[in-house]
Amino acid sequence: MDNLTPSPVPPQPAAADAAVVHPGVAPISYLLGTWRGQGEGGFPTINSFSYGEELHFSHHSSKPVIAYTQKTWKLSSGEPMHAESGYWRPKPDGTIEVVIAQSTALVEVLKGTYNAEEKVIKLQSELVGNASKVKETTRVFQFNGGELSYVVQMATNSTSLTPHLRASFKKL
Rank of each mutant, 00 (worst) to 15 (best):
L106A: 04
L123P: 00
G42D: 07
Y68W: 02
A26N: 10
L127W: 13
L172P: 00
S103A: 07
M81N: 07
G24Y: 09
K122S: 13
E126V: 12
N130T: 08
L55P: 02
K63A: 13
P64Q: 09
A18I: 12
F49K: 15
A105Y: 13
S58P: 00
T159P: 05
T156P: 08
L55M: 13
S48A: 15
Y150N: 02
V25Y: 03
G33Y: 07
A116Y: 05
Q153Y: 09
S132P: 11
Q124N: 14
S62C: 12
R166P: 15
I121P: 03
V99F: 11
T159C: 09
P44C: 07
H56N: 04
S168A: 14
T95V: 04
Q38W: 13
L123W: 02
P80L: 13
G52H: 05
A14T: 09
T113P: 02
M154N: 08
K170Q: 11
P13M: 06
S149Q: 02
A167G: 03
Y114T: 06
I66R: 00
E84H: 07
S132T: 13
I100P: 09
L75F: 03
S125I: 08
S158R: 10
F57H: 01
I28V: 15
I46F: 09
D93F: 02
S77A: 01
K122F: 11
V9E: 10
A131R: 01
L172D: 10
A155F: 03
V109Q: 11
F143Y: 14
I100A: 03
S48E: 15
N157V: 10
I28H: 07
L4P: 09
P10K: 12
K119D: 11
N47M: 14
G86L: 01
A83N: 09
L172F: 14
L32K: 05
E118Y: 00
G129F: 08
H60L: 04
G145P: 07
A131F: 11
R89E: 15
V128Q: 05
H56G: 00
G39N: 11
V107G: 06
E40T: 15
I28C: 05
T162R: 06
P44D: 11
N144F: 01
T69C: 06
M154K: 10
